[in-house]
């Protein structure tokens, strides 16, 4: 038990040092712009299909599941607004972040982990190239910027899914549906929910990079790095979400 606790605190301490190093390295030139753009493509663009399918299903299912209850109260017309609010404030950010924790964080963990065990990171270091700057800073930055974009995209696709779901039993045109959606939305529904997605993105990139970059030697550790990256990133997303909701509640 003592050893287990000690390893948790050691890991937490190392993660804090890793984060500190990220903020130190991010401001120091040279900047790896080309690699950053490549990572934006890999993390952002290549995740679009997955996020699109998930977002659409989220909106569709949420509409279909909520309809019977709202119908009982004769509040069916609130359905578009309720679905949009649920999606934008909570469901789309969290589900998209969890999907990306699975895809991006594990991918980064496995990639950097295998680079570590096959001495590719050491090879960079002995060539006087800063591997932290090239591999870690670019990936964390790309993830921090791309996850919010993916979430906004998931919001839009989710609302479209809601429209399709609504039209299975009713007949509402797109303009009227959208009018109902935007009527129910306010600035405070969108702003805090979008801000928290930057933290989701940051934690996804950070944890994936930390687990991969600190993988011990041996191929077994590559699997462990990928696995623990997903678990820790998912857990962190829920913790950040809880804190974000509490803070939003205080200020708005």
């Amino acid at each position: 038990m003592v050893i287990y606790l000690k390893s948790i605190f050691t890991d937490a301490g190392n993660l804090i040092l890793f984060t500190t190093r990220f903020f130190r390295e991010i401001v120091k030139p040279p900047f790896e712009t080309h690699e950053f753009i490549k990572q934006c493509y890999v993390i952002g663009y290549k995740s679009f299909p997955l996020v699109a399918v998930t977002g659409f299903i989220m909106g569709l299912v949420l509409t279909l599941q909520s309809r019977p209850t709202l119908s009982k109260f004769g509040a069916e017309s609130w359905l578009p607004g309720m679905v949009a609010l649920s999606l934008i404030r909570e469901i789309a950010p969290v589900i998209t972040a969890l999907i990306c924790a699975g895809k991006v964080s594990s991918g980064i963990g496995a990639e950097l982990g295998s680079m570590k065990v096959t001495e590719q990171i050491d090879a960079m270091e002995v060539s006087a190239i800063n591997p932290f700057k090239y591999l870690v800073v670019t990936r964390i930055l790309a993830s921090t910027l791309m996850i919010p974009i993916l979430v906004v995209f998931a919001d839009a696709i989710g609302i479209l899914g809601g429209y399709v779901g609504f039209n299975i039993h009713s007949d509402v045109n797109m303009v009227r549906y959208n009018a109902q959606v935007f009527e129910s939305l306010d600035f405070i529904d969108i702003f805090p929910a979008t801000i928290k997605t930057f933290f989701f993105g940051f934690s996804i990139g950070l944890i994936g990079c930390y687990k991969g970059f600190t993988a011990s030697n041996g191929t077994e550790s590559v699997g462990k790095a990928a696995n623990s990256a997903v678990v820790l990133a998912s857990l962190t997303i829920f913790i950040i979400d809880m804190l974000a909701v509490q803070i939003t509640d205080l200020f708005f």
């Binding site: 040279p30 680079m115 001495e119 090879a123 060539s127 006087a128 190239i129």
Partner: peptide
Amino acid sequence: RLRIGFLFQNGALYDSMSVRENLSFPLLRH
């Protein structure tokens, strides 16, 4: 380090890069 070359046991080539990119990678930076 720029004056020392290190050949790793398994070559430690960057998996995601072609041979051309592997070789030009350190050169472009230095």
